[in-house]
Design a protein around this nucleic acid. Structure first.
Lengths: 338, 338
DNA sequence: CTGAAAGCGCTTACAG
DNA sequence: CTGAAAGCGCTTACAG
């Protein structure tokens, strides 16, 4: 069961172990010829360097800690896949931890990252638990946030441009002729929700549409919550002609409630989402939505982190552009409906 | 930037560093009183044990390597979320790697797991690359496979009971009165595809339905491929009255093609999937499917791995039961349609 | 170019 | 109960 080490190779090659170490790492310090001979022997013996021993002396683990709310979320899955890809290209491994938005878990995760001496942390959770922000700070290790800003605490982040994207999306609804547009949001206080709402509000403002309290409902970013919120809208005496949803997950729930009420999309109600999950194009009707470049966001966050390794002062607040993807869930309002 | 170590605490507490080490780990070898004093000091100094140093001597990293085809796949996301949960409960961290079904990547992943000295490996890829099976074997480290068996090479796995589940699902279609049932499969040679096909074949056999070559088509487990395969079925002069799909992803693609042809589900064609992705209940119509206990499969695989740590001889081939979830995409065939 | 020495931050016999 | 010594498998000055 003993693993073979640099010393075993040294013995076999009749050199000292530091020389083996150098040869393995292709250090120019060792004669070409000996280096090759050593590597050949190492190969033959099936040697694999021990990263933990190496980390102990270099004080780098080549490891990135990634905290997510839950990896089962399709949006997050895409982001993480971008992270993993970029990390891998640069020789880093990803340690993944779900926080489940549970403060106790979050503390745990951070402690475990700390003990494992990850080189940096990526946070892809829609709300960074307030509890562990100070911990992260004290940790003094590069961190970049994805779709989550805490300007006072963290300088590095990659975000979707929520306000501009929402503005654009709602303007599109207005161009179609809608005036009575609802906002089906996420929980109150979420930064991205606030921003998407801002875009919505501004679009209405510019178009001289009234901002109608009864048309603003809250959900939880998930289908069920979206469904409940949609039910509220459907109980209004005058229905909205279009609904702008915080995200596609909410829209999926809303869609099924609209259907259940026997209304048609988009003829009776237009529906607009945010995210562009892979599934959204397979809904019936295919969902008009704002595409977030999820994979790219993961990649870029990783690249910022890597920059931070070289230059701890590096600052980047990357704002990504959302892209309006027009599909079939939106159309001009039908005059007749009440 | 110097991290604080056990020696710093030792100095502060006026004891030797091994005593600090023992106190931190709650070893009974140190007097209750001193232990508490030491821990108090460690806490005050914000000490966090260095897991890499510890790993070097204990030869355990408390780390599990997880290989997946891609974490962006919703099925895999759920499985991994179960893995992460169980691993975390036992104090293990998860190192995640996407293989993208790319042999070069796979070799890379295994090497990186080897160098990092993960304690065990979990593979959740529908096809373990043949290339790296020998490597994994040589590695001599506990491995458990999820939905992927290689009986000659690996003894430990957790699988869905493909044959029985498919048999049951197709029998349900037969009970509804279908006789002309298509199988929309995955790539030829995939074990789970072969098994699901076997269940299909047996169900037809038992019911004295003919096995019709034209009703058996191949796809790739994704919506697009499912769509293409469905197109083939839709070009037959006599359409099937029901289609059993390898998985929900394929069914999603098939569904949209059926729709595009102007046919109704389930009135014209019944559609049955496999997996029960979260989205499947939000399709229109909600999809009848076989539910795989994805999260539980991840958990159980992890638990088997943990057992393997204690007892390398432990063998487990866990067969999970699929559950038929009847929704609205299936109904008795309509007599009239041709 | 190569090797002897020291050290990374822990844990584990071994003495006492 | 406590400490001195050794060692886990590497890398990095330092000499030569």
């Amino acid at each position: 069961m003993k693993q073979i080490s640099i010393k075993d190779i040294a013995r076999a090659a009749r050199v000292s172990h530091p020389t083996v170490s150098r040869a393995i790492r292709h250090s120019p310090l060792v004669k070409q010829e000996t280096a090759e001979r050593i590597r050949e022997i190492a190969n033959r013996m099936g040697y694999r360097p021990n990263a933990v021993a190496r980390s102990l002396v270099t004080r780098k683990t080549g490891t990135i800690g990634v905290v997510v709310t839950t990896i089962a979320d399709p949006f997050i899955g895409e982001v993480v896949s971008g992270i993993e890809e970029a990390a891998n290209e640069h020789g880093y491994s990803v340690i993944l931890a779900n926080s489940n938005a549970d403060p106790a878990r979050e503390i745990n995760v951070v402690q475990s990252f700390q003990e494992r001496r990850v080189d940096g942390i990526l946070v892809a959770a829609s709300r960074v638990g307030a509890m562990y922000i100070p911990m992260l700070n004290r940790f003094k290790i590069p961190i970049v946030l994805i779709n989550n800003q805490h300007p006072e605490e963290f300088v590095d982040s990659v975000m979707i441009d929520n306000v501009a994207s929402s503005l654009r999306a709602v303007q599109y609804l207005i161009q179609l002729g809608h005036r009575r547009i609802a906002y089906l949001g996420d929980q109150y206080g979420l930064q991205s929700d606030t921003e998407r709402f801002t875009g919505y509000r501004e679009a209405l403002l510019h178009a001289n549409c009234p901002l109608c309290a009864e048309l603003i409902v809250q959900a939880d970013g998930k289908p069920e919550g979206g469904g409940f919120a949609m039910d509220k809208l459907l109980s209004l005496s005058i229905l909205p002609t279009a609904v702008f949803c915080y995200n596609d997950m909410s829209a999926i729930g809303a869609l099924s409630r609209i259907r259940a009420r026997g209304l048609r999309i988009p003829q009776d109600i237009s529906l607009l989402g945010f995210d562009d999950l892979f599934i959204s194009s397979y809904l019936d009707p295919p969902l008009t939505t704002v595409r977030q470049p999820k994979r790219a966001m993961g990649r870029i966050a990783t690249e910022i982190l890597l920059k931070l390794f070289d230059d701890p002062q590096y600052e980047a607040n990357m704002k990504m552009k959302g892209e309006l993807i027009v599909r079939e869930s939106t159309a001009p309002p039908t005059a007749g409906i009440k």
